[in-house]
Each structure stands twice: as C-alpha cells, then as structure tokens.
Design a protein around this nucleic acid. Structure first.
Lengths: 346, 346
DNA sequence: CTGAAAGCGCTTACAG
DNA sequence: CTGAAAGCGCTTACAG
C-alpha cells in the first residue's frame, strides 16, 4: 500500500500543497469551506503528514523523550514508572505527541542519550526522573536548551521547569500519626541515598524526630528491592532497641518487611507497625493490609506532560507543586503493645 | 547552541556532504583514512544525523512502536511489560533504534495508532502484544505492510512474524506436578478470556485434567487484578467441593488468593496449594513464598526486538519459539492434608 | 484567498 | 575514490 502524501490530497482537492498544509495546521489562508473539504479528503484517504518531513521543515518532532535509569529488575517491580507513563501518555496522545522511551545504564549514558536526541532533533523535550543533588544532567540540558521538565524537587533543578510533591510534609504527617498512636521508636528504610527525594525525606525524618524528642530515628538505605527491604528489616528488628514502627520508602520493601517480621515471630501491628510509601494495589493484597502514603501518580504524569508541552510551546514555565501524598491508615499500624513498648526515655 | 549538520562536518573535513554520509553509514566510497578522519570530526563536534532528514531521504525512521492496551491500574501492577520493555530496549539501543510507546484505550484506538504511525512514517515496525483470536490488528498490519512481530501465539498471527512461549506445556507440567503431590481437585484463576494465551492455557488445562481423570477442573476468568483474584478465590474456596490447589494466571492474583485463603482460615499449603504464573520478586516476598512458573522476560523482549529488526531489514522471518516457563517449587505447594482431601472419585 | 518556490538535512544514483 | 545534484514531503514566506 502506498502512503498518501500531501500532494495526493492537494490533487484530489484541486488546490496547492500549501493550501493543504494551511488547512491541516489550522492556519489562516484557506476559506472555511475549502478547509473542511481538504480535511474530509485527508481523512478519507488516510493521510497524516510525514513526521519526518514536518520535523525537517522546522516544525516540531511531535515527540518527547523519557530516559529511565534503573535496572530491569527494579523497573518491573515498581508500579510508579508505568503509572507515571500512563498519565503522561494520556496527555500526550490527546495532542498527537509520541513518547520515546529509553532505558539507560547510568547517568553518563543518559546524558549521551540527551545529546543524541538533541542532535538528531528526535524529541522536542524531555522528562527528567530521579533527580540527584548536583545532578549532572541539569547543566547539560540547560546548555542544549532542550525543553525539560524535572519530575522531582523542590530545588536543584537549575533553570529547568519541574513538578514536585512535598514528601517532607507527608513524612512529617506520618511520624506524627505514629507518635499519636504511642510510638517512640520509629525507624525508616529509605530509598537510594543519592536521590534527592530520598535525601529530603531523610532530612525531614531526622528533623521531626528531633523536634518530637524521639531517639534512635535511624534510616537504613536500600535500593528499593524486596531483598534489601528484608535485609534492612532484619537488621532493625534484631537490634537491642528495636523500633516499634518502620516507615518504608516503597511498597515492595514494606511487604518484604512484613514477611520478615512475621518470620521473626513478631505480630503486625501488635509488635510492629508498618507504613509504606507508594500506596498501590499490592498494599491491600497482604495481611494485614498496609497503611500507606499514596497519591495519584497518573495525574502527576499528566501534570508533568502538560508542563513540558507548555515549555515546548515557549510559554514561561516554572515550578509546579502537585498534591502531597496522603496517609491511608489500614491494618498494619496500631498502638504499640504495652509489653513490648520501648523503655521510656529519661 | 546550534545543532551541527552534515555540512559542518563536511566543511571541517574538507570533503563533500556525500562523503560524510558514506563514512557515517559504513558505505564504500571513501578511503579508510578519510572515513576515520570524518568520524573523529563528527564525534568532536557532537554530530548525529537528523533523524527527520534521514527518514525523509528514504532511509528508516530508526524507531519501532509498541502500543499497550491495558488500563493504568493493571499496567502498573504487572511487572511483565516493564521487564519486556527493558529487554526490548537493550537490543534496540545497541543498534540506535528508539522505542515509541503508546498507551491506548482499546483495539480500535490501537489500530488507529498503527495507521497513523504508518502514514507519518514514524516507525519502521511494531510489536503486537495481547494477541486475540481473530485479532483485528493482524489484517490491518498485513495490509499496511508494516513490519510487525507478534509477541504471542502460536498461530493466529497471519503472515506476521512472531515469538511465543509454550504456555500449554508449562501448564501441563504444573498440573502433573500437583497431581504427583496427591491433588485431585485443581482449579484455575485465568486471565482475560479474550486473550489467545488465556484460551490456550484454558484448553491445555481442561485437556490434561480430562486425561488424568480429574473432575471439577474449573477455570474462573479474571482481569488480572488483585480484586478479581481475591473474588475468584473466595468463590472457589466456598464451593462445596473446594479445590485443594489453585493455579493463578499472574502473580498479583496468586498473592491475593493467598490472602483470601489465610483470611478464611485455610492453611497454605496444608489446606490449599497455590501456584503463580509470572514468577517475580513479589512471589518470594510473601509467606509462604509462592511456587511459580517463570521465565526470562527481558530475554523474551530482546528476542522479539532482534526478530523485528530482522523483519525490518527485509530478512525472511517467521515464528520463533522462546523458552518454556519452568516451575520453581516453593513453600506454597505441598501434598493435600489427609483430613481435607477430596472424596475419592468413583 | 491561492499558487509557485525555496529550504529543512539528509541519502543516493550519476558523472568524473 | 570524490563532487555536484536530485529528491524525500512537508512548511512558510512571497507574489499575485
């Protein structure tokens, strides 16, 4: 089957190629009647402008890029990215933008991908995930003047646009909730320490624990995998002053932690309360169901996509705050059991 | 920053644009010394050929497409697609191919996406997931002559290339394993009934149960969600002749089933054995860890990608069988407890 | 409101 | 082995 071109449409409509182009792009230069006739013919013969020709004539590539820098094992198990992508897609496809996805091994490879995309004019803009402190990607994207939206923050985004959610506030709320239940020994299994949002959560955790006079507010780092979640939990639970509550930086580690606790003969929530970030259907599949911090990730992705399209359109874009994760109490949290309550601080 | 073009490279190298093109594409027409010099200059000034210009000159778009037709909720929770994408990417990026991802609402939308991609010349080929019986996408792709690799089968792929895995054999192995343990009442919670691989599994299940003289080999359909897995399990376990073993078509439903069993006071594996498809890290996070059918999904994706690139290159490609899922016995399966053994058939 | 033409940045026959 | 040129299918000033 031969692909129809703009010339085919022009011939059948009895107009010039220019007229077809104007009609298709909603530009002035054709009468309303002609425009309608041209559109009908394009539709009839299944014409869509060649994205290559369009991009080459100085218009946009009508594509944006997303590079993901996580090993396959972790990518698969974290619902976050797929949910984010779903939300991004919903917004993009409504405006006929394509999403170009690339899985990369490390930051250097990711930067190389940005440079290549830019040189190839393959994308009009990019999303940046997993922001780090002094992130090397930020100055590169600024230098290339490639429109970008950082998914994360606040801060450390240079002059790039960004969307973020206040994890620190959510963490404080969680600690206060646990303290209200009577917990005094709270620990945390954190995500990758080099990620900014991990750092922000850790700082908020230490601050609120200090403010509330809680001792031993330790954060054990991890790579988000179930194995590390289990290992961290074992370490925490076998320490002399074991915590009565643990906050996990993702759902998978929380579920692993729940297993470990049960394995060690500790009742949840009787002996140990558990809170998971990234509330997902998984949290409700286990017993007891997990108290979790959740928010609408597809909506977050949609927000990021709108922001990026605005940046590409040349609109002034800055920092956009999305909703803060909210706590959904479920069966995995309760007041600490009297018999196992930690000794009162003195 | 101005993007370098082939003319910039040609000028600095003191050769024609044609020579640069030949050098870059490994074509004859330039001496080895000149080629090396040109490549060095391209590297130095960060030149990559414009994908649009390249695509427009009749070369390929250097991109392939993947349309996913599942709701966000399900996409996120199934590690399958992200693992598949990881494997696909590994192969594509090694050959500088981009992956264009699109989430669609239904088959009609998916077909529209294929037609648009084709008309726009946006991709050189596509992957087709979730094959159905009499799948409407197959004749469309044949008509468009858009290179495609169906991920699924066997059969029902028309003249399209495909990669598949023998789910029927894996299912038979699983049933035989359960029967060897002493189970006589085996049920199954299946995936979406309209998907071909669900159908093939169901047929294999019914066949092997008939061959082995097992009664009540029922398959309850589902949408792969934890909720439906839980509902189906409740229904199965409260039937008068409840099964002593259940096979689930994915890991999430198996975990939900485990929860339901424990909720209903049934011991796993004492009162109920559980087997999950799609062995994933999740299966080892729960208690007891789940006996599961697994295979290397990133490798499957890589295989599919190689196959698609071969099809795009015009090589004759057909049907490729990938490894069959293998059963990993873990704590969720055991001989049925004597007291709860089903009455002997007579 | 419409038509003829240049130009985007490549690839690829075609001469030399 | 190299250079000059056509052409891919659009968009967009520029004349009419």
């Amino acid at each position: 089957m031969k692909r129809p071109t703009i010339a085919d449409v022009a011939r059948r409509a009895g107009v010039s190629k220019g007229a077809v182009s104007y009609a298709l792009n909603g530009q002035p230069g054709v009468s309303e009647a002609t425009r309608r006739r041209i559109l009908a013919i394009a539709e009839e013969i299944g014409f869509s402008p060649s994205s290559a020709a369009r991009a080459l004539s100085g218009a946009t590539a009508k594509a944006v890029g997303l590079a993901l820098c996580r090993p396959a094992r972790i990518l698969g198990i974290e619902p976050f990215f797929m949910e984010l992508i779903s939300g991004v897609e919903a917004e993009l496809s409504a405006r006929s933008y394509a999403l170009t996805l690339q899985v990369v091994a490390d930051q250097a490879a990711e930067i190389a991908v940005y440079r290549r995309w830019w040189a190839e004019r393959r994308v009009d803009g990019v999303f940046v995930c997993d922001l780090r402190l002094d992130d090397a990607r930020v100055p590169v994207l600024e230098e290339l003047r490639l429109p970008a939206v950082v998914i994360g923050g606040p801060g450390h985004t240079g002059t790039l646009a960004s969307v973020w959610s206040d994890d620190a506030a959510a963490l404080v709320e969680t600690v206060e909730y646990l303290v209200a239940l009577g917990h005094r020994r709270i620990a945390r299994v954190g995500g990758l320490p080099e990620l900014l949002h991990t750092r922000l959560r850790t700082e908020a955790f230490e601050r609120v624990c200090r403010d509330l006079g809680l001792a031993g507010a330790v954060t054990v780092p991890s790579d988000y995998s179930g194995e590390e979640g289990a290992r961290a939990t074992r370490r925490l639970l076998s320490s002399p002053n074991r915590p009565s509550a643990v906050i996990y930086d993702n759902d998978v580690m929380a579920i692993a932690g729940l297993s470990v606790a049960q394995e060690m003969g500790l009742a949840v929530p009787g002996d140990l309360s558990i809170v998971a970030w990234d509330d997902s259907p998984l949290c409700q599949l286990v017993h007891p169901p997990l108290t979790a911090l959740g928010r609408d990730i597809p909506a977050y992705g949609a927000q990021a996509a709108r922001h990026l399209l605005a940046a590409i359109a040349g609109e002034p874009v800055g920092t956009l705050q999305d909703e803060t994760a909210h706590l959904t109490p479920r069966g995995s949290t309760a007041p600490p059991r009297g018999s196992t309550a930690p000794p009162r601080e003195r």
